[in-house]
Design a protein around this nucleic acid. Structure first.
Lengths: 147, 147
DNA sequence: CACTATGACGCGAACCATTCGCATCTGCAA
DNA sequence: TTGCAGATGCGAATGGTTCGCGTCATAGTG
């Protein structure tokens, strides 16, 4: 009935780090564990409300920030100012960067290893440690790209 | 006295594209031509005011958007929501991408050719045409990076 | 198992960067 | 010189996110 869920894993991790396990935090984790999508804070709050939890937007932001700083959640800044969140469980999808289409807004996943050379180069020559998944790349997707 | 300035070059280009040459647009170009920095819209407006031009912030945004769409100005989205603008003249600095430190906010320039392999790969395998200079990469700079 | 204090929550207001609506003004082609 | 498409100035609106503050609950303590 209950395969070991990403949800339980994350909640256990939360507790293990000495953080409080509160209803809003659990709701956020539950929502993120229940989808493969990248959700905005607003979507997280809405989805939590749809499941019967009453989650204020500001609280969703706070929970997401906390979980991010603990490493349980990853967030990606999209051009246009919005931010998307997803769980970073061991069982989750492989690490990937994002590329957002400036025309239609579509986001495609870019395998993180495609960025390895760049990361190495920037590190060795500029001492800068890139976090490639943290901000989306931009460009034009196949559909919007000029011929 | 007057070497052919980036300012004149840009103004001529504006005119040549059949666009109106207005005082606000000229002021924006003048400000951007007068610095090697990347400026925010607010900084552009402030700097223009400092030079005696009266430039409303909304107008600065409109001018910057117009100039961007014409290719005379490039803009880069930084994490945190702000955007920086710089002239994209032939005489300007070499094309480069940006990497912003999530800790101290410092922005370092990354040679665009370091991204060539990535761009090629994403294009050939996903049909997505990256514009690497358009959004800043993120990470930790040499000073803020954990040892 | 009750008690308490630390830290989270809920709420609305505040904030920041950016955009919009609209009346007015102006560059530039005729 | 004139006409008008299009640009400006202004303030108000928007979208995303954070803050202040009074209230409430988790989790360690006795």
């Amino acid at each position: 009935m209950h395969p070991p869920t990403a949800r339980d894993e994350a909640l256990a991790a939360l507790r293990g780090m000495g953080e409080r396990v509160t209803a809003p935090r659990a709701a956020v984790i539950e929502v993120l564990a229940g989808t493969a999508e990248h959700l905005s804070a607003e979507e997280v709050a809405a989805s939590a409300r749809g499941r019967g939890h009453d989650l204020h937007l500001a609280t969703a932001y706070r929970a997401l920030k906390t979980l991010s700083s603990l490493g349980l959640v990853r967030h990606t800044h999209l051009p246009g100012g919005s931010t998307t969140y997803h769980l970073s469980t061991s069982a989750g999808p492989r690490a990937h960067a994002h590329a957002a289409c400036t025309s239609c807004g579509k986001v495609v996943d870019v395998p993180e290893e495609w960025l390895d050379d760049l990361v190495r180069r920037v590190r060795s020559e500029q001492g800068f440690e890139l976090a490639p998944h943290h901000a989306a790349l931009t460009g034009r997707c196949a559909d919007c790209r000029p011929a």
